[in-house]
Amino acid sequence: MTRHYTAHAAVRAERDGAGRVRLTRLRSDGPYALRATPDAVHLVGAAAGPLGGDELNLDLEVAAGAALAVRSVASTLLLPGPGESTTRVRAAVGHGAHLDLALEPAVAAAGCRHRAVTDFALEAGATLRWREELVLGRHGEPAGRYSGRVDVTVGGRPLLRNELRLPDPDLCTSGAVLGDARCTGNVLLVGPGLAAEPYAADGLAVMPLAGPGVLVTALAPDSATLRRRLRHGEERART
């Protein structure tokens, strides 16, 4: 018998009277084990996967004036299994609060069927840094089926709704979608004082959004190049 995980991890950061940020909630569940360090909350994979059929939820809440950074210690391997696997991140960021969510890459292994859903609800005056990276297959293997959607609202208004749908290899390799890139990723910055001018280079675009944010999108042949391009793009987005 196959065991499926339905996990619900959660973090809440608040600012106390003395101006210090406290984690008033730190709930690990199933494969999502959370460890707090002075700099960040780390997601430690306590099980392989997600495997097909798993449903992993992570709720993040950053109360007004607080700051929270979330990292992971290793890349996530999306594996096949009976059914679709889902990861869901819901983040609420209060006025004057900052969330920095940058997990290590997700690797879509052959045969996986994965859906990633990310929702950021920012109050006016909240700021965000979010990085996502996707690697299409382990070395030498074709990627499974992947779809990921992110929805970002600021003060209830939509800032970014962006979905990557890779239902088949045919669509991945379309010159309009990923071409011959095996890795793709984004960095989203939300807040004041970001670049107002777009910038582009080979496999990289820095795109000021219609609202208060900049999306950096990169394509690359490998994960090291992807990270380098995103880093370069992020620097451009902050100037």
């Binding site: 979905e163 379309s174 309009a176 990923l178 777009p198 280079a201 675009a205 394509l219």
Partner: peptide, 21 residues
């Protein structure tokens, strides 16, 4: 309207910005 599809094409985005140069 929030639930309308949002399928993106990363390569098209990069091309669109490169095109201006």
């Amino acid at each position: 309207p929030a639930a309308l599809p949002a399928a993106s094409a990363p390569a098209l985005d990069v091309f669109a910005e490169l095109h201006l140069r």
